[in-house]
Amino acid sequence: MDLGLSGRTALVTGGSRGIGMAVARRFLREGAAVVICARDAGRLAQASARLIEETGGSVEAVPADVSHEGALDAVVERATERFGGVHILVNNAGRTSGSDPESFDAVDERLIVRDFEEKHLGYLRAARAVRPYMQSQGWGRIVNVTGMAARLAGPISAGARNAAVVHLTRSMAFALGRSGVTVNAVSPGITATERLDDLLGLDAQRRGVSPVQARADMEAQTALGKVVSTDEVADAIVFLCSELASGITGEHLAVSAGRGQGVHY
Rank of each mutant, 00 (worst) to 15 (best):
R39I: 10
D197R: 15
V238Q: 07
H167L: 12
T13C: 04
S16Q: 07
Q221N: 09
D73Q: 12
L196W: 11
T13E: 01
P63V: 02
G140A: 08
R29F: 07
A129V: 06
S99Y: 05
S187Q: 13
R43A: 14
F27H: 04
S103T: 15
G31L: 04
V59Q: 02
H264I: 14
H120W: 13
E219L: 12
A149R: 02
G225C: 09
I52R: 13
G42W: 03
S187R: 05
D65C: 05
R125T: 05
A38Y: 05
K226I: 01
P155H: 02
V181M: 03
D115R: 13
L202Q: 14
S157E: 08
P188S: 09
G260T: 02
R161M: 09
V66E: 00
V113R: 15
G201V: 07
D73Y: 05
S246D: 02
S246I: 05
D231G: 06
G138H: 08
T146C: 13
G98E: 11
F27L: 04
N144A: 02
G31F: 03
T193S: 11
V76L: 02
N184G: 08
G208S: 09
D197G: 08
R151M: 10
T13A: 05
G177I: 12
T182Y: 02
I190R: 11
N144V: 01
L168P: 06
A61I: 05
Q137K: 14
M218Q: 15
I112H: 13
L124V: 06
A106W: 08
A32L: 10
A61D: 08
S179K: 11
G42V: 05
H68W: 04
A126H: 08
A164V: 06
T222I: 07
H68S: 06
R206T: 12
V113F: 09
E30C: 04
R82G: 00
R125H: 09
R26G: 00
G260N: 02
D235F: 10
V107K: 01
A47P: 04
K119N: 14
L199I: 10
Q135W: 03
V255T: 05
S256I: 01
A33P: 00
G84W: 06
L89P: 01
T169Y: 02
G85S: 07
M21Q: 13
G147H: 00
D217T: 15
D115Q: 15
A164N: 06
L11E: 00
H167W: 04
A93R: 07
P188T: 06
H120Y: 15
P101M: 12
D203Q: 13
L11F: 12
R25A: 09
D105E: 15
G140Q: 06
G147P: 04
G14F: 05
G250C: 09
E102P: 06
R95L: 13
G180W: 07
T9Q: 10
E219N: 14
V209Q: 11
R178H: 12
S157D: 11
A61E: 04
L121V: 11
V62R: 02
R8C: 01
A93Q: 01
D217K: 12
E219M: 14
M134W: 03
G42Q: 11
L124S: 10
V212R: 15
A223S: 15
A164H: 06
A185D: 01
T55N: 03
A175N: 07
